[in-house]
Amino acid sequence: MSGMNAMGARHPIDLTVNGQRRSIEVFAHHTLLDVLREDLGLTGTKECCLVGECGACTVIIDGRSVDSCLVLGVEADGAEVTTVEGLAVDGRLSAVQRTFLETGAAQCGFCIPGQLVSAHALLADVPHPTRPQVEEGLAGNLCRCAGYEQIIEAVLSGADLGSSTADDGRDQGRLSTPAMGDRSATPDAELAPQ
């Protein structure tokens, strides 16, 4: 613990952000969100609730989406991090970025980086999600402008550009009325009786 002052010690970390290797020194008590925004200047990742409820700070770490406000910067040592700035490749928007524009999903835009990162993480796991799977996948990203419908449509059509399956989940997966605490998106396998 040498080198401690009132603000604690700095820890050297190496991480890959949007494909770029970065070597920096961070304070232990700074979250990955702080590090991205303040140390790396990547302000696309947004700060809102700081308790892992709103998802505005969602990034992908080693293939999994996380709330970067609940990850310490030092924990990202050695990690591969993708932020909203890394979703477009060589200046070309991803399919979901394009469909977000087309469906009008982005209004004020503040939650959109998080929504997009969650959508990318979802589609990496489930390339052709049903509507309930999209709802579940984006439930950790609050939006106050939209009624979410255009966001959900954007993810569905981004998942399968040019295909007509975008609406299928609506009627297949939402016939029942779930109770508070039900997750209609629970995959069948997990509900299978023993």
């Binding site: 409820e53 709330d67 997990e190 509900l191």
Partner: peptide
Amino acid sequence: GRVGRDYPALAEAALFVGSVQIRNR
């Protein structure tokens, strides 16, 4: 799959914990 098959209540409970981002962590 094993949890879903043999301990479905645990699989259901785990799915209730927070959002995807929280469950990933």
